[in-house]
Simulated assay, not measured.
Amino acid sequence: MIGRLSGVLLEKQPPFLLLDVQGVGYEMQAPMTTFYALPEVDHPATVYTHLAVSDTAHQLFGFAKRSDRDLFRTLIKVNGVGPKMAVAILSGMDAAQLSACVHNDNVTALVKVPGVGKKTAERLIIELRDKLVAAPGTENDLLSDSVAVGAVKRDERDEAESALISLGYKPTEATKMIAAAVRHKDSADAQELIRLALKRIAS
Rank of each mutant, 00 (worst) to 15 (best):
L5Q: 03
Q22L: 11
G3W: 07
L198G: 02
L19N: 00
R200L: 09
D20R: 03
E139W: 11
R183D: 05
L142I: 14
Q191R: 13
L98T: 11
A197N: 00
P136F: 06
A100E: 01
Q191C: 02
A179Q: 11
P14Y: 05
D189E: 01
T33K: 08
A52W: 06
R195G: 12
I165P: 04
V78N: 05
K119W: 04
T49V: 12
L132T: 06
H58Q: 14
G62P: 02
L90H: 08
K77T: 15
Y48T: 04
N79Q: 15
V87G: 01
V111I: 15
D186R: 14
R157P: 06
L110R: 12
G3F: 08
P14S: 01
C101V: 09
A100K: 06
G23H: 09
K176L: 10
L18V: 15
L196V: 12
H43S: 14
V149F: 15
R200K: 14
P83Y: 06
N104T: 11
Q97H: 06
A37K: 12
H43N: 14
E159M: 08
A45K: 09
Q29C: 06
I194D: 03
S146I: 08
I76A: 11
G3N: 07
V8W: 04
M177A: 13
T138Q: 15
I89W: 13
V8Q: 07
S6C: 02
E156L: 04
D186P: 04
K84I: 11
A202G: 09
R69W: 04
L167T: 05
A181W: 00
R200H: 12
V81R: 04
L164E: 04
R4T: 05
L5I: 05
V107Y: 06
Y169H: 07
L124E: 14
F72I: 05
D141L: 15
E40M: 01
R154I: 10
L38A: 10
G80T: 08
S162L: 07
P31A: 09
S91E: 08
L19F: 05
V182T: 13
A180T: 05
D158N: 05
E173V: 15
A148H: 13
E173W: 08
V21L: 07
D155N: 10
Q97P: 02
A163D: 03
H43V: 07
D55P: 10
S144E: 14
N106K: 15
V81T: 07
M1T: 12
S144Q: 14
G82C: 10
E192V: 12
G115W: 02
L143D: 13
T138C: 12
F63Q: 08
G117Y: 02
T108H: 14
D55E: 15
A160L: 04
A121K: 01
A37G: 02
V21W: 10
A151N: 15
R69L: 05
R129S: 09
V111S: 00
A86M: 12
A57T: 11
L98A: 13
V116Y: 03
V149I: 14
A134D: 08
E139S: 14
A86G: 06
I178L: 05
L51V: 12
G82D: 13
Q29G: 01
D42M: 09
A134W: 04
A190H: 01
T172H: 11
A151P: 07
N79L: 10
M177W: 09
N140Y: 15
K176S: 12
T74R: 04
I89A: 06
A64D: 03
L60W: 04
P83V: 03
V8K: 09
G82T: 10
V133L: 10
T34K: 09
V116A: 05
G82L: 10
L18E: 13
E11H: 05
